[in-house]
Simulated scan of single mutants.
Amino acid sequence: ALDQTTEWIKESVHEELLSLSETALTPGAKNSSRPSLSPTLVLNNSYLKLLQWDYQKKELPETLMTDGARLQELTEKLNQLKMIACLSLITNNMVGAMTEGLPELAIRVKKISAVLLDGMNKETFNLKEVLNSIGVQTCVEVNKTLMERGLPALNAEVQANLVGQFSSIEEEDNPIWSLIEKRIQLYMKSLLCLPNPQKCMPAVPGGLTVVQQELEVLGSQYASIVNLNKQVYGPFYANILRKLLFSEEATGKAEASSSTN
Results as ranks from 00 to 15, higher is better:
150 G>H: 01
40 T>V: 07
243 K>V: 10
152 P>S: 03
15 E>H: 12
130 V>A: 04
242 R>F: 11
123 E>Y: 07
3 D>Q: 13
256 A>P: 00
168 S>P: 03
199 K>N: 10
170 E>V: 13
7 E>Y: 06
166 F>W: 06
143 N>E: 03
155 N>L: 01
135 G>I: 04
186 L>E: 09
85 A>W: 07
111 K>W: 06
62 E>I: 02
253 K>V: 13
177 W>N: 11
60 L>H: 04
163 V>A: 06
190 S>G: 00
249 E>Q: 11
124 T>D: 14
138 T>D: 02
110 K>T: 15
238 A>T: 13
81 L>N: 00
106 A>I: 08
49 K>V: 03
217 V>H: 12
66 T>S: 15
219 G>L: 09
3 D>H: 10
234 G>A: 12
68 G>I: 01
103 P>V: 04
93 N>P: 00
161 N>Q: 14
160 A>P: 03
198 Q>G: 01
176 I>P: 02
246 F>C: 13
165 Q>R: 15
7 E>W: 04
2 L>V: 10
116 L>E: 11
256 A>C: 05
3 D>S: 11
162 L>M: 07
36 S>Y: 06
225 I>S: 09
50 L>G: 05
32 S>A: 09
227 N>D: 08
51 L>S: 14
205 P>D: 01
115 V>G: 00
107 I>D: 12
187 Y>C: 00
258 S>K: 13
110 K>M: 05
94 M>A: 04
117 L>C: 06
231 Q>M: 11
257 S>W: 13
142 V>A: 07
115 V>Q: 10
193 C>Q: 11
249 E>S: 14
73 E>M: 11
181 E>C: 05
75 T>H: 07
109 V>E: 03
218 L>N: 05
74 L>W: 07
117 L>N: 06
65 M>P: 00
94 M>L: 13
243 K>A: 10
256 A>S: 13
